[in-house]
């Protein structure tokens, strides 16, 4: 396989200006701090990280919308700075949310316009538009105004728009953001179809199960640095010393959560999620610490719905990687 994307020591700094008209302040913020990675042709590659980690900055540089401060990046063999025109011809971009479409006109008119921008002739664009709308299940609404579409339909139209010029490489920046579960599932199916069509895909997402389900390999970024790069299975194996304890507490019991936090100590990570009538407490702990044995005493007086001991998921790995490593720690990469 050859690399569809080659990123070498990519760095992007922003100058942030502040202060009033008399006293101006100026500081530099680093969104990317020297990332190096390769994406193979035909691969579905995930970029994971918390807000502000640098995922969107990376996609903007690779899609020629932003210049790097230093380092190099090539897309399908073309340098994103010096050969932006060649890169643009071969990529498709989908940004999350329902923006990026002309709501006052129909899906067909939207697709026709983008086909025109990519220089497609009328006959070819007619065929591609019909195919793309059929592929995303919108052919019956093709001539309706886009602002009458649901969010899920708009996202599917985004996919059709991204494919209209048959790009070899597709950037999907949080494509399921804001979608209901059914819409998100439909969109994930569309992403799988893109993969089956042989497209190289770079996907950013906040949803771990989505990355786990879809991606061949995942890069976890945090504070502009690469924290880990491996397949989902390899990432899970990177924390063999970890197990997860999930406890459902019925009713709001902050004192019980506080006691659990005390029990967890500094070597374990605790996250508490409020659900409508209960609280889900998740403890990631090193193997060898039998926290379950201490639960009857720790949770005395609390109404416990359920207790589950399980193997770590990708989300657990992510939390461990992002919260458990000091900023600036070297990237963890799976052995070849």
């Amino acid at each position: 396989m050859t690399a569809a994307i080659e990123v070498r020591d990519l760095r992007r700094d922003y100058v942030v200006r502040g202060g009033g008209p008399l006293r101006r302040s100026r500081r530099t913020v680093s969104a990317l701090r020297g990332i190096t990675l390769d994406v193979e042709e035909g691969e579905l590659f995930g970029l994971l990280g918390p807000n502000g980690a640098g995922k969107t900055t990376a996609i903007r540089i690779l899609s020629t919308l932003l210049l790097p401060t230093s380092g190099t990046a090539t897309v399908l063999g073309h340098d994103v700075v010096r050969q932006a025109g060649q890169v643009r011809r071969e990529i498709g971009i989908l940004f999350g949310g329902d923006r990026g479409l002309y709501g006052r006109v129909s899906a067909w008119q939207n697709l026709r316009y983008f086909a025109n921008l990519y220089g497609l002739g009328r006959a070819l664009s007619d065929r591609r538009i019909a195919e793309a709308l059929r592929a995303v299940g919108l052919e019956e609404r093709a001539h309706d105004r886009v602002d009458t579409y649901s969010r899920g339909m708009k996202q599917r139209l985004h996919i059709a728009r991204t494919l209209i010029h048959d790009p070899r490489l597709v950037f999907l920046d949080e494509p399921t953001i804001g979608l209901d579960p059914i819409g998100a599932r439909e969109l994930r199916d569309q992403v799988r179809r893109l993969r089956a069509m042989g497209k190289t895909i770079l996907l950013t997402t906040h949803y771990m199960f989505e990355a786990d389900e879809l991606c061949d390999r995942i890069a976890i970024v945090d504070h502009g640095r690469l924290v880990a790069l491996a397949s989902p299975a390899e990432l899970r194996r990177m924390v063999p010393d970890l197990y997860v304890l999930e406890i459902e507490l019925e009713g709001g019991r902050p004192e019980a959560v506080a006691r659990l936090r005390e029990l967890a100590g500094p070597s374990s990570t605790l996250t508490a999620t409020d659900l409508p009538d209960r609280q889900l407490v998740r403890l990631q702990s090193p193997r060898g610490r039998d926290l379950a044995a201490a639960l009857p005493t720790t949770l005395a007086g609390a109404r416990v719905g359920s207790v589950l001991v399980r193997e770590p998921t990708l989300e657990d790995v992510y939390v461990r990687m992002v919260e458990g490593l000091p900023a600036g720690a070297p990237a963890v990469e799976a052995a070849p």
């Binding site: 899609s63 020629t64 919308l65 025109g85 643009r88 011809r89 990529i91 971009i93 940004f95 949310g97 923006r99 990026g100 479409l101 002309y102 709501g103 983008f114 921008l117 990519y118 220089g119 728009r161």
Partner: peptide
């Protein structure tokens, strides 16, 4: 309004033509 400017710039045709 539409959030399409980035897509226009990322198209291979010059933005001045658009």
């Amino acid at each position: 309004w539409y959030g399409t400017f980035a897509l226009l710039v990322a198209a291979p045709v010059r933005t001045s033509v658009v």
